[in-house]
Amino acid sequence: MLKCPDDEPSRRRPGWLGWALMAPMLLWLIAFVVAPTLILVVYSFCQRDELGQVVYRFSWENYRRIFFDSDRGRLGTVYLDVFLRSAIYAALTTGICIVVGYPVAWFIGRAREGRRNLLLTLVMIPFLTSFLIRTYAWMTILSEDGILNGFLEYTRLISEPFQMLYTPGAVVLGLAYNYLPFLILPVYGSVEKLDPALVEAALDLGANPWRVFQKVIIPLTMPGILAGIVLVFIPAVGMYAVAQLMGGGVDPTIGEVIQNQFFSARDRPFGAALGITLMLMFALVFWIGARRGMTKLE
């Protein structure tokens, strides 16, 4: 097919109307993303005084504290372990969301037009309730005197209450529950666009269902899966309320540690440094992912 250069969207430059329409978004980004990030960057190189006020004197100390353990004189600190733990929780959460969410998204995407909207509404319904109330509800279900333990004891499946709340498992469960819709929705978007004729063609040409899934369906829904992974993984790493409420604060996650710096430890510069480090780690992973994606496409 011949390409007409003028029609390529990237070549078209936005006129004044385009800029005017984008202005609210740009202002929003500057006020609530760019400016706070710059403040964090400045803070992260500062120090604190006795009262916990930020002292504007340049220092690398906060970053050194994250990467280098001066007590033991080696690289690698408790904070890096905490980063790792948070990443593992988030990765498990993402994994569970894919395994549970993908079939759901597929089913909704293949359903009859009328039923689709109903099913999507069902996915969205939990959002009508406050996040905190849903989390407290889970705590009631999982606690020792809770519904689940009561049921298991009643049916004689267990003889004494099983510790479910305040464990890492409870944290991952809470995260997966809260972020599941964020995976279902983008995958549904891809599934809906997938042309059924391609699946039929693959079957006609002799591919077995597994091969069709592997070679046709997965690649075609990949954009949705990737968007879902980003939407689940990134917020899950930083989420501290679930870790605090359902994990009991026993195994610290990075969100809790950062929150602690801004409140009880009164060390905003160090909290800022942790936040910036987390952001840079995301950026790095994202960049590597994007580069690999590019080379594949080429």
């Binding site: 408790v78 026993v250 195994d251 610290p252 540690v257 710096q261 009164r266 160090f270």
Partner: peptide, 18 residues
């Protein structure tokens, strides 16, 4: 300022006991 050391000690031990 020693509160920073206290915070580090407790975070450290919580992490180790997890």
């Amino acid at each position: 300022k020693i509160s920073a050391d206290i915070d580090k000690l407790v975070t450290d031990l919580k992490n180790a006991s997890g």
